[in-house]
Design a protein around this nucleic acid. Structure first.
Lengths: 181, 181
DNA sequence: CCACTTCCGTACCGAGGGTATGTAACTTCC
DNA sequence: GGAAGTTACATACCCTCGGTACGGAAGTGG
């Protein structure tokens, strides 16, 4: 599968350092085949990006569903996201290369259908339960999401990510606390 | 000046769509001259990135210095950062292309000497004044910084950025409020 | 004035994104 | 079941562009 091979190479070497030909070869086909299925290199990357978004959105939804109330579901979701950031393939594709390759516009459009959608739903639920302070929900989601992305990169860079996770998570949860009623 | 021309083109068309030759031509020299001063294309971009960081760090410091106390200086700094995000050149170079081209490691190294340094100093001052809750300061700065970057992109995308600024700023200040003692 | 460095231009190479074209296989429809 | 059209590749080629090699002019130091 082309997208599978692309995910592997894009995730390991980055977008710029990965040639279409290398991806095609890894998938056992030629460049022509790749260009038959995808308009250009960015389109192939986009498919990988969307796939990655689907994965994490599913993971978040699943993790949140196991929590008893909307607020703890929110906290659990944030922690799950941070854990996902320990995966270098995810970081490379979604956090580093994604915006530069696809542009902010397109990235947000995709994220609004996946990761940010889950976050927005979680916040809406919390608001409906009356545990979330009033304010602009979309902006709020965006800010929290940005903080989490940065937190993920920070904790991935630390020498002992597993050790750093609790302290970073604690700070993230403190920020979330600002939104509680 | 090569860096000046590079800033213009990188900021307008993005890193990938800008050739060294185009930058050199815009600066009135040839590609050879560019490669004499910079090891490669990324090194040229790095210079532009550092320059951009210097600008905003200076602006932040200056804005914060006009405030009477450490906490309002922090708030003012955040608002100034958001205003800076209205500049498309800044967004493109610092927020979009920077991480992908230089890598997270290098970006953070540079930011720690400029933007993040100002933020850290501001938070330290607030902590020294006893208006900031205990916690991990570096992680805290990183999270707030991430939230602000995302906020900047969000507000730049809105149809009427000047109108959106207050509501986004309000959400950002609410997050900051979580850090107050 | 002669060695040496700095600065910049010219010419070239090779990688890689993208296109044009050919052609099997497979589907559709009568 | 075969003609017509579509899908799914491969091959060959072009061209941009990052990077290198090299040459020469202009300053600099002794």
């Amino acid at each position: 599968m082309l997208v599978t091979a692309a995910r592997e190479l894009f995730g390991r070497d980055g977008y710029a350092a990965t040639s279409i030909e290398a991806v095609a070869a890894a998938a056992g086909v030629t460049k022509g085949a790749a260009y038959h299925h995808f308009r250009n290199k960015a389109a192939l990357f986009r498919s990988v990006f969307v796939e990655e978004q689907r994965r994490i959105a599913d993971a978040l939804r699943e993790a949140a569903a196991r929590e008893p109330d909307s607020w703890s579901a929110l906290l659990r979701g944030c922690r799950t996201f941070l854990e996902h950031c320990l995966n270098p393939v995810f970081r490379r594709i979604v956090l580093l290369d994604g915006p530069a390759v696809l542009g902010w516009e397109q990235v947000r459009e995709i994220e609004y259908a996946h990761t940010l959608r889950v976050l927005t739903e979680g916040m809406s639920a919390a608001a409906a339960d009356g545990v979330m302070a009033d304010g602009d929900l979309p902006a709020r989601c965006q800010l929290i999401f940005g903080a989490l992305c940065e937190a993920g990169m920070l904790l991935a860079r630390s020498d002992e990510p597993a050790k750093a996770l609790p302290v970073v998570a604690a700070e993230a949860e403190r920020l979330l606390g600002a939104l509680a009623r």
